[in-house]
Amino acid sequence: MLTHFGESLTKLPVPAAVRAAANLWFLDLFSPGRVGVVAFFCISGFVIPYSFGGKNPALSFPINRFFRIYPAFWLAVCLATLVFAELGVRSTTPSQFLVNLTLLHRMVGVPYILTVDWTLLIELLFYVSCYALFLVKRIHSFPVHFAAMVVLLAIALGGGVYRWYHPMSSLPIGIPTYLAAMHFGALTRMRVTGYGPVATRFFPAALFLLVFGAAAANTLAYHHTKTELIGVVAANTGYLGGVALFLACVYAKLFVSGPAQLLGKVSYSVYLLHTIVLAIVIGLWPFFSSWIMALLVLVPAYFAVVVLVSILAQRYVEKPSVAFGRWGVRRLEGQARIGSKRTT
Score class of each variant (00 low, 15 high):
3 T>V: 11
8 S>N: 09
31 S>H: 09
33 G>A: 10
43 I>W: 08
43 I>E: 04
45 G>H: 08
51 S>A: 14
57 P>V: 11
58 A>G: 07
61 F>E: 03
65 R>S: 07
65 R>K: 11
70 Y>L: 12
71 P>L: 07
75 L>H: 08
76 A>N: 03
77 V>A: 05
79 L>A: 14
83 V>R: 00
89 V>G: 01
96 Q>T: 13
100 N>H: 10
101 L>N: 07
105 H>S: 12
106 R>E: 15
110 V>Q: 08
113 I>A: 00
115 T>H: 07
121 L>A: 05
123 E>Q: 08
125 L>P: 01
126 F>V: 15
128 V>F: 11
128 V>T: 14
136 V>G: 02
153 L>K: 01
155 I>C: 07
157 L>E: 09
157 L>F: 15
158 G>Q: 07
159 G>E: 11
163 R>C: 05
168 M>L: 10
174 G>V: 13
178 Y>R: 05
185 G>V: 13
187 L>V: 13
189 R>A: 15
189 R>Q: 14
195 Y>H: 13
195 Y>K: 02
206 A>F: 02
208 F>R: 02
215 A>P: 02
216 A>Q: 08
230 I>G: 00
230 I>M: 10
232 V>K: 00
232 V>M: 07
239 Y>M: 02
239 Y>E: 09
240 L>I: 14
240 L>E: 12
247 L>Q: 02
250 V>D: 08
292 I>R: 00
293 M>L: 14
296 L>H: 06
314 Q>S: 09
319 K>D: 11
323 A>D: 08
323 A>W: 03
325 G>C: 05
326 R>F: 03
328 G>F: 02
332 L>T: 05
